[in-house]
């Protein structure tokens, strides 16, 4: 326990070391540590944000997928309806066409029958006249007896 001038020397060394440490050692090391901490904190925050963004994007994608599916289902539904409609329309048109064709066929037949009947009637008139001519053995004045003949034709 002998205190001597060594204590002064050590005190000077202590002061010099502490000042050097305070000026040239502590601040740069601390600055580096704090800067790195800031970088790490930023990185963590960014990754958090990215994770949240990803979650949002996934939810959005799911939503859109659902929308698309329901839209597709709607389109298919509409298409089916349209198909049924078209088929129905076509059937209706075909029915109408058929009816028209049938009607025109009937009308044609009717006309032809009428024509044939008219023809037959004329021929019957001719035959009747010829028969009457034969029966009377003489020529009948067609003009004089046309009223009788007309009555005959009307009766046929």
């Amino acid at each position: 326990m002998n205190i001597n001038a060594t204590i002064i020397g050590e005190l000077i060394a202590f002061v010099v070391f502490v000042i050097f440490c305070m000026k040239f050692v502590w601040p740069p090391i601390m600055a580096a540590i704090e800067a790195r901490q800031a970088i790490i904190a930023d990185g963590l925050a960014a990754s958090d944000r990215a994770a949240k963004d990803l979650e949002l994007a996934q939810a959005k994608a799911t939503e859109q997928l659902k929308d698309a599916k329901s839209q597709a289902a709607g389109i298919i539904e509409a298409a089916k309806k349209r198909e049924a409609q078209i088929v129905e329309e076509a059937a209706g048109k075909a029915e109408a066409e058929k009816a028209k064709i049938l009607a025109s066929g009937h009308a044609e037949i009717e006309t032809e029958r009428n024509q044939a009947r008219e023809e037959l009637r004329q021929q019957v008139v001719v035959l009747a006249i010829a028969g009457a001519e034969k029966i009377l053995e003489r020529s009948i004045d067609a003009a004089a007896h046309s009223d009788i003949l007309d009555k005959l034709v009307a009766e046929l």
Partner: peptide
């Protein structure tokens, strides 16, 4: 009183310089 312990002074200053040299070299390249 004006006795100096050369071993105490020498080793303590040497070790202090070891400390400051290492830490300063890191601080410079931090």
């Amino acid at each position: 009183f004006w006795t100096l312990h050369l071993d105490t002074l020498g080793w303590s200053v040497f070790l202090g310089l070891v400390f400051l040299t290492i830490f300063r070299s890191v601080a410079k390249k931090a």
